[in-house]
Every structure is written in C-alpha cells, then in structure tokens.
Amino acid sequence: MSLLEETVAWFSEPAQWSGATGIPWRLAQHIGYTALAVAAAALVAVPLGLYIGHTGRWRNLAVLSTGALRALPTLGLLTLLALQLGIGLSAPIIALAVLCVPPLLAGIYSGLEAVDPATVDAARAQGMTEAHVILRVELPLAMPLIIGGLRSAVLQVIATATVAAFIGVGGLGRYIIDGLAVSDTARVLGGAVVVVILALVIDALFAAAQRLSAHFADPATPTKERHA
C-alpha cells in the first residue's frame, strides 16, 4: 500500500471518528485550547493595546517586546514551562497565551494608530469623552487591523498547540507526536492533514470577517480609490 492509501485508510477507520482518541474529540480539544489561550492573551493584550494605541505611550516598549517575543522558540518555552509547572493544562495554556500576545497587541495598537488623527480630533471637538472616542470612533475604524492581528494570533496558537502535544497535552498534535514515536506514518500524516485543514478553514473565516469589518469601518471599501 502506498503512503497515500495508508493515510486514506487511516481516516476511514471507525476508531478515528469516536471516543477520546477520535478526530472529533481531539479537534474539540484543539479548538478549546486555542480559545482558552487566545482569551487569556486578550485579557492582557486588549487593555494594553487600547492604552498604547489611544495614548501613544509605551509604544517603543511594545514594538521592542513584540520583536523579542517573536525570537523566543515556542518549543523551548513549552518544555521549560512544562518542567516548571508540571503536567497539566496550565503550562501549555500559559505558553500559548504568551506567544499570542504580540500579534494581538500589535493588531490593536497599530489599528488605533492608523485611525486618522483628524477624525479623532473632530470627535473630541464635538464633545465625546475619551471612552466615547475609543468605543465609537477608534475601535470601529481599527477593527479590520484588530481582526488581522487576531487572525495571526489564532493561527499561531493552532500551530503551537500541535507542538504542545510533545509535553503531553491532547489535541490534534497527539496523532503526529504519537505516530512519530511508533513510526506509524499514516497516523502522522492523517493528523497533519487535519491540522492543515483546520488552519486553512479558520484562516478563511477570518479573511471573511476582516472583509466584513472593513466594510463596516468604511462602507466605501470596494471603491477605495477616492480616499487616495
């Protein structure tokens, strides 16, 4: 049997479609970890990003730490935290959250920064409070870029959650890590294919959301020429 046939055969086994090692449950785990990590990161990134984007303070610090975090090897962070915090969900979730703060933060502050200062000034001149300015002017206008940041953050976490199987958590990465351990190539490839499909689907959903939000932020988006 060729590898392709073996992989197809792996997908058609009934065991893959039910129970704690089946694709549906592992997929749910994977999405669950991702949601948890992104939510945890958002708790830090949203207020911080709004503060930096709105006031322009601490900007250099944010840029610098974003760059530095990008250099941090994900596998190194995962294994180190796992050894420090022990087996369980806290180590991988913290690691995943840390890694997705930079893209989230960058999306928010650069989104707010990209809003025309004249528009913000005009809003203030009409008597809006700072909270109004953020909620009614800056956030809606920055939404496409914020969703762009969320998009890279989520994709980053989906990829890293796969790697996290190495430190013993569930999710789709299990197929790859376990398959590698016992040289079961069909399982490895099967798992890889599911992760890739998940990533592509999520990416497509975010692309649609980004387009939609761009339309809300500026209903004239398709004919953007007139702003140039």
């Binding site: 990829a159 796969t162 790859i176 190539t185 890889a192 890739v196 592509l200």
Partner: peptide, 17 residues
C-alpha cells in the same frame, strides 16, 4: 500568504513524503 498559514509541525512531517 496561504502557504504561511500551514502550521509548522504538520508541514515538517508532510515534507519527507
């Protein structure tokens, strides 16, 4: 840019095939 959305570990294991 779609290429970039492929997660790394899956790509690493698909590559040998």
């Amino acid at each position: 840019s779609v290429l970039y959305t492929i997660p790394s570990l899956p790509l690493f294991v698909i590559m040998p095939t």
